[in-house]
């Protein structure tokens, strides 16, 4: 391998970014939908509870069969890993909107759209960001494992390749890289959440 570690990491990060963004959009959208609709929640919840326990790597063969390419399959694995925590946390956050807030909205006769932006979203935001923080950690775990199996590019493949060519020093350097990047990803979502939640509160 001639590419430097930053380039390997970059390749992995790019896949995580796409899959994770998709998961956040679908997770928050779906979570709001099932959180506000009791019937929809009752219908979907058993499926989520079963699907979320399927390990990320177990999705890889079926993704490869469906997409027949490594790139979309890796992104799908990231998506399917990250979507459940966001989805479930968002649904709970929406369900836990304090009754007082709802009463105030009813007294003021807030329009639906205004209720959504001024009450529902701000009070669900802490839950949403908790889910997104769990999800980013899981995505990073999943991409490294997925790349070990798919090969080609990325930090996961680099680690496996180093092991196969007995380059143990390279392997350890790569592991430290993975750990530090995972830490930075986690903190990035944490501070993003903190900034968004606080700006909503004022």
């Amino acid at each position: 391998m001639n590419k430097g570690l930053a380039l390997q990491i970059w390749e992995s990060l790019r896949r995580v970014a796409i899959g994770y963004t998709l998961a956040a959009v679908v997770g928050i959208g779906g979570g709001i939908a099932i959180g506000t609709n009791k019937l929809l929640f009752r219908a979907c919840d058993p499926f989520f509870q079963i699907l979320r326990t399927i390990p990320p790597l177990a999705w890889l063969p079926i993704a490869l069969a469906a997409f027949r390419q490594v790139e979309p399959s890796s992104i799908f694995v990231i998506f399917v890993t990250a979507v459940w925590p966001v989805l479930i946390n968002t649904a709970v956050g929406v369900q836990e909107v304090p009754q007082d807030y709802r009463n105030v909205a009813r007294v003021l006769q807030l329009p639906r759209l205004q209720y959504f932006w001024t009450i529902l979203l701000p009070s669900a935001a802490p839950y949403i960001f908790t889910g997104m923080r769990i999800a980013v950690g899981l995505s990073w775990l999943a991409i490294v494992a997925a790349e070990m199996l798919t090969g080609g590019v990325g930090i996961g493949f680099f680690i496996w390749d180093s092991y196969n060519s007995s380059r143990m020093s390279d392997l350890i350097v790569a592991l430290i890289y993975v750990g530090v990047v995972g830490f930075v990803l986690d903190k990035a979502i944490y501070y993003l959440g903190k900034a968004v939640v606080q700006s909503d509160g004022t």
């Binding site: 979907c44 058993p46 499926f47």
Partner: peptide
């Protein structure tokens, strides 16, 4: 019924 019927209908639909 309200607990079992919605997931069952969704399963059939899916």
């Amino acid at each position: 019924g309200p607990q079992v019927l919605p997931p069952l209908l969704l399963l059939i639909f899916l």
